[in-house]
């Protein structure tokens, strides 16, 4: 097994940071976009772990399709402008 490269450590730290941001960022839209990039980086991780099958599946399903699902749900949920304001207010109320 090859020694740990700086790349692996960087990738792992970025993954953890992104995961935290997905859950902690204020804006739901931003969270979803971060989640998609999280999935993309995860696919990179699969390549590093010599699992090209998983990299393909993760990029297409785990990141791409799931991301599209989240974005479309977000659009349905937020709907018009009035609702968007409501979402912001709720967010602050929490």
């Amino acid at each position: 097994m090859t020694a740990v490269g700086a790349f692996d450590i960087l990738l792992c730290l970025t993954l953890i940071w992104l995961a935290w941001q997905v859950l902690a960022s204020r804006d739901p839209f931003r969270a979803v976009v971060l989640f998609i990039s999280f999935g993309m980086l995860m696919a990179l991780g699969w390549v590093r772990l010599q699992a090209p099958d998983l990299a393909l599946a993760e990029a297409a399903i785990g990141s791409g399709l799931t991301g599209a699902l989240f974005l479309s749900a977000l659009r349905k949920v937020i709907g018009g402008k009035k609702d968007e304001r409501r979402l912001d207010r709720d967010e602050e109320a929490q």
Binding site: V4, I9, C12, L49
Partner: peptide
């Protein structure tokens, strides 16, 4: 020895807890 697998495994556990 520290292998990439180890790092990724620990990252996986950290992601689970996050």
């Amino acid at each position: 020895t520290i292998s990439p697998a180890l790092i990724y495994g620990l990252t996986g556990l950290a992601l689970f807890v996050i």
